[in-house]
């Protein structure tokens, strides 16, 4: 699937960003991950071979230094919906990164990106769907 060494840029090294970074590195991508807090990188395993950069990514110059111009994949995974919205739109509309993901706690943010080639990741919606599936499985037949 990844014949050429593709590159991924991830902003936010929280649980989601960190796990995605490890996953992509294991799948042979060249990964760069950025976080404001250098402590956040501690959650990455020792064998993680990606590049770590300190910064919030809000400044375009930081994104350019992190290689956004040549990235094949961009993931906005900070804990802040507004910030992820801005980052994903910069990646998609200004730098035309071919594949862009953005994490949103508030599913309403999908409305802001639905016309754009930005894929939303909605942890809350996913958890709720999981719950509903289980609930239906356990109690669904009682109706």
């Amino acid at each position: 699937m990844f014949e050429k060494k593709r590159s991924a840029l991830i902003i936010g090294c929280g649980r989601l960003g960190g796990h995605i970074a490890e996953y992509l590195a294991e799948h042979g991508l060249r990964v760069t991950i950025m976080d404001e807090d250098p402590e956040a990188f501690r959650r990455l395993s020792e064998s993680f071979g990606g590049l770590l950069l300190q910064g919030n990514g809000i400044d375009e110059a930081q994104l350019v230094r992190a290689g956004i111009e040549n990235a094949d994949l961009f993931i906005a995974a900070t804990g802040d919906d507004s910030r992820n919205n801005l980052l994903a739109q910069i990646a998609c509309r200004i730098y035309e990164v071919p594949t862009v993901f953005a994490r949103f706690d508030d599913a309403n943010f999908e409305k802001l990106v639905e016309d754009l080639p930005i894929r939303g990741i909605f942890p809350f919606t996913l958890s709720l769907a999981e719950f509903e599936k289980d609930f239906e499985f356990l109690f669904g037949e009682e109706d």
Binding site: I58, S82, R83, N85, L86, Q89, F109, K111, L112
Partner: peptide, 16 residues
């Protein structure tokens, strides 16, 4: 005071 919040608010206002 946060630029990214202003973007989100203006985009919601316009789009939704």
């Amino acid at each position: 005071e946060r630029d990214e919040n202003n973007l989100a608010v203006c985009q919601f206002a316009k789009k939704c």
